[in-house]
Amino acid sequence: MSLVYRIGFTLESLFDYVRSNKEWTWGGAAGAVIEGGLNGAVQKWVPKWAQPLVGGGIHVLGSWAQHAIDGEPYSFKDAFTDFSSYVVNENSLVKKVKSIDKTIDKVCSLLEKYIDFIQKTCDVKRQLDREVRKIADGVTQWVRSMDPNDISGPTGYGRARFIQKDHRMEYKIRFENNENATAPAQRVYIEHKYSEHLDARTFIMGDFGFGNFTKEFPPKSKLFQGTIDMTAELGIVIRVFAGLDLEKNMVIWEFQSLDPKTGDAPTDPSIGFLPPNNGTSGQGYVTFSMKPNKDVAHLSTVHANASIYFDQNEPIDTPNIFNTVNTYIFCFSNPL
């Protein structure tokens, strides 16, 4: 009976992976089989309090197998992030919140067919989603604190990170000048190649900031070009450019320090707008949002990552994140 149970658990994991990933790979299938098989073998013998930790280790092993078979790199940092995220998601409090959320989803989907005032109920749920996302953002901040050069987006539902096709996908890219750097960064250039499943016409810039400075773009902005006068604080002016490059399917940002007397980059390498990080002044971020194409196919995968350039150095590539588009119409059209 124990063997039958383990086989069933393994097949269930494989089926869930193939069903939720339209562009599945052999490595992903192998990782699902390993994860499902090991979980089925050990979960009955592991104390309840230790199951998230053991499950996290098994999840990392499955992810490592997936990347190894697919010929993709998998670093210690990736393993740490996968393990931490798994443990957080398997936390009993988080599970209870998700269980309540799923129950509300089911109730909403049933009531939509028969009750005209369902929208009010769903609005309450969406407010709950926004509050839970604030908690999730705090967890993400803690989990990824080892590498602030990253990108974050919609959490979605489940391991496939499902979102509804009409959901506005909000992204945040963070960057940091390394604390061991010998000089401040004079120029930071960020590029994000957006997914072919996203509609460029829905692109909207959010806000940006560095150190103690923040600025919101005008509502529904798609392009920005201007300067920030920081002569009193840093003795420089910062030229900012942000917008879409439709030919390359990219969103780009550029922050360039300028000598206010010459209009050129400072000749003194000790002058720049982003000093080595001391916990506050050496960090920055940019935000934007887009929506999926109206004709996006069911179960399409939307990937997102970014490349960050500091002065003339090689780019720092953020980890890749993804969401899976669900084209069915349910109440949970505004996931986390």
Rank of each mutant, 00 (worst) to 15 (best):
S152F: 00
Q66T: 09
D147N: 12
N91A: 11
Q119K: 14
K95W: 03
Q51L: 08
E35L: 07
K165H: 14
C108N: 15
G55T: 02
L53R: 03
A68E: 09
D116I: 01
P148E: 03
A79R: 00
V60F: 06
S152Q: 01
E131G: 07
V132T: 07
G71F: 06
V42M: 11
P47L: 11
P154Y: 00
E90M: 15
D82Y: 01
G153T: 05
T103R: 15
V107K: 05
L128F: 13
E72D: 07
K134R: 07
G28T: 04
E112M: 12
S63Q: 08
L128D: 01
L128S: 12
N89A: 08
S84T: 03
G37K: 01
V139E: 13
G36P: 02
S92Q: 02
T155R: 07
R133F: 11
A41V: 12
Y86E: 07
Q43F: 13
D105T: 02
G156R: 05
H67V: 08
V46G: 08
E131C: 11
L93R: 04
K98M: 06
T155Y: 01
G31M: 03
K44A: 11
D129L: 03
T103K: 13
A160R: 05
D82L: 03
K134H: 05
G28F: 00
H167A: 10
A29H: 06
T103P: 02
G71Y: 10
P52E: 00
D147I: 06
K95M: 12
K113Q: 11
I163M: 09
V132Y: 08
R161I: 04
C122R: 09
A68P: 03
G62M: 13
Q51M: 09
K95E: 06
L61Q: 02
Y74I: 14
P148I: 04
E35N: 12
F117K: 10
A65D: 04
G156C: 13
G37D: 00
W142C: 14
K48W: 05
P148N: 03
D147T: 09
R130I: 10
I100K: 05
V143S: 11
K96S: 00
G156Q: 12
Q119F: 15
Q164T: 11
E90C: 01
K95F: 06
A29M: 14
G55W: 02
G138R: 14
Y157E: 15
K77P: 00
H67P: 07
D123F: 04
S84Y: 03
T103I: 04
W45F: 15
N39E: 08
I69L: 14
D150E: 10
T140R: 14
H59Q: 13
D78S: 03
S145V: 15
P52M: 01
D116R: 09
S84N: 06
I104D: 08
S63V: 01
D105P: 01
G56P: 09
F162V: 10
A68D: 10
D123R: 02
